[in-house]
């Protein structure tokens, strides 16, 4: 049931990201809601669940995106790995400042990887590209700050439900 809810949330997010948010940009910038959800799962759910989501939904995003097939899967799994480096096994140290730090690091890894890959392929390292990359990082982190309390509540509710079901 809980996995079904997460799958539903992810599909809705992926759909919104690639259809609705694609049209409604903020000064040409679009927050990466999929990355926000991925980091939230890595922070507030179990690491193995986050890896499973990263693999499955990375493939979905790869099929919708123009990048080389597998790049999203790889970057999402790298994201979970990076997040797991910051978080204790029992997630007891997950606080708001740590969450924002993890999101900043992860989105920087995500967008800089893309920028480097594309720049090497296009043989062009324009300054405008770097600025755009940093702006994308900023807007994604900004949206994370707004949405993560809600996502945290959702994942805590899911955890409680799971505990009740398991009789813990």
């Amino acid at each position: 049931m809980i996995i079904a809810i997460n799958i539903f949330i992810f599909i809705v997010t992926a759909y919104l990201q690639s259809s609705l948010l694609g049209r409604f940009d903020i000064l040409g910038l679009v927050p990466n809601m999929i990355l926000i959800l991925m980091v939230s799962i890595a922070l507030y759910r179990r690491t193995y669940e986050a890896y499973a989501f990263a693999f499955a939904f990375g493939l979905i995003i790869d099929s919708l995106s123009g990048g080389p097939f597998g790049i999203h899967t790889a970057i999402f799994m790298l994201t979970v790995f990076a997040a797991s480096l910051f978080v204790k096994e029992d997630h007891s140290n997950v606080t708001a400042p740590l969450s924002i730090t993890v999101m900043s690091v992860v989105s920087l890894i995500f967008y800089v990887t893309f920028w480097l890959t594309l720049s090497f392929q296009a043989k062009s390292f324009a300054l405008s590209g770097i600025i755009f990359t940093l702006e994308q990082v900023a807007i994604t982190v900004g949206f994370f700050v707004i949405t993560f309390p809600l996502l945290r509540k959702l994942f805590e509710w899911e955890e409680k439900k799971a505990d009740v079901r398991m009789g813990r």
Partner: peptide
């Protein structure tokens, strides 16, 4: 158009 690129770094559509 069905989808826009979800990353906003690449410019592709489905």
């Amino acid at each position: 158009i069905s989808f826009f690129d979800p990353t906003n770094i690449r410019d592709t559509i489905v």
